[in-house]
Nucleic acid binder design. Structure first.
Lengths: 236, 236
DNA sequence: ACGTATATTATGTGCAGACATATTAAATTC
DNA sequence: GAATTTAATATGTCTGCACATAATATACGT
């Protein structure tokens, strides 16, 4: 570790974060190894312990460090970085490209979900579930076909929502922000969806599966199928 | 706004964050509108202003709030949520599935990048660029074919790295963590890549394009093509 | 030697106070 | 009325101190 390059002259938490980041880059702290503790780093940088804590917390939030009380702080073997989604994803995407966005409700029904959906949402058996199919367009051209299941036991209010006017995604984003979930990307052939997306059944399409939870309660499972050649862009 | 439900009895920043989250859910604060300022919220919750600041900062980092000095804090019209990637993504994925991971360097050369790559990396003209093709396997089965361009002007040290032993991704994650970038998912037919991925040329495959930057300098542009049926999973 | 209890320690949090900074509002000048 | 200057304000940061908490180390008992 290079001690001579301390940042004594400038003691903002950002400068400490940057200095620590540089050391991580240079492998001064090997992946998996402990870094010096906060009190020692505060001495080295000539600032308060709370300031070091603030800097290290940012690095931990960004996925570079693992922090444990008493155990100390380690450089992660594999950084866990985050990518940003803007939600509502589809409307924002379409409008950002300068196109006119339109949403069309295709089907809405209370329905018993098939086993694959029950498994995704970890349903026990008695839950009421809403099944919604919709099409999202850009300049009157099909952009994304959505097949979505919403657990009414978790978000009963959506039952009173006019889903002709408001897409379930927009409503959920506003009224049922998830606490955690998963998102999967896969490539499939359009198949039966080609009639919605107006393409060839053999065309490759990007599909996104999303499951969201509110604490321990499942909110929704959505399968979004995009038109061929569509690219889903995330910011890193 | 519901003032009677203050959290006077429990004043951790987490409880304040949760209380504010509940209000956002309930639309007590409309999207785009200002919420009460920190001093007022501190009075309401019966805690220090710094504690409110800590809670709101978390909500801002999570994408629900926009904060500006003097201007105040607004509920975002569209939340910007984050998804988590574990990097090195491929090795972690393969090993998490219980398979044996293997990396094979296919090609490595200094080369003039084509216009499409120059554009992705915003290259001016004189930059030295390394071109690396590699195959990543799971239990001896091709899992991902990677075609990657690395800007040597940004990360010259990689030139001395034995890329037979170490995948460029692993090296870059360790030595050149990006400050920002973009990631795109798309569905394509395998085409010429089918000979690497050992599949039919018409098979749909998931492709991920990633461009990363170190401040204003481009690091790398990678096109990763996954074997058919592969699902890229992110945590929300 | 092993299991349990106690002590220690590194990070996490809350607070009060002061100061910094970016932004908006108000006052002043032309 | 428009432009410029000054004042006010809401968030951002730093500090020192105290306390909390989770985890590891040490001590004690069998």
């Amino acid at each position: 570790m290079v001690k001579g390059e301390s940042s004594v002259g400038s003691v903002s938490w950002q400068s400490i974060r940057d200095a620590m980041m540089a050391r991580i880059r240079a492998q001064d702290y090997a992946p998996g190894e402990l870094i010096p503790n906060e009190v020692d780093l505060a001495t080295e940088f000539g600032c308060a312990r709370a300031t070091v804590n603030r800097a290290l917390r940012d690095l931990a939030t960004s996925g570079f460090l693992d922090r444990r009380r008493k155990a100390g702080t380690r450089v992660r073997e594999a950084p866990r970085r985050k990518a940003t989604l803007a939600i509502p994803l589809t409307r924002a995407e379409v409008e950002a490209s300068g196109a006119r966005y339109e949403y069309r409700l295709l089907e809405r029904m209370g329905e018993t979900p098939p086993p694959s959906v029950r498994e995704k949402l970890k349903l026990a058996g008695k839950e009421r579930v809403l099944h919604v199919k919709s099409l999202h367009l850009a300049d009157n051209v099909p952009h994304m076909f959505e097949d979505r299941w919403i657990v009414l036991d978790t978000v009963p209010e959506i039952e009173a929502v006019d889903l002709v006017k408001t897409s379930p995604n927009v409503w959920l984003v506003r009224h049922a922000p998830y606490t955690h979930g998963t998102m999967e990307f896969l490539a499939e052939t359009a198949g039966a969806r080609s009639k919605h997306l107006i393409c060839a059944p053999d065309d490759p399409i990007l599909t996104m599966l999303r499951v969201t939870w509110l604490d321990a309660s499942p909110i929704t499972f959505a399968r979004q199928s995009f038109s061929p050649s569509h690219r889903m862009r995330l910011e890193l």
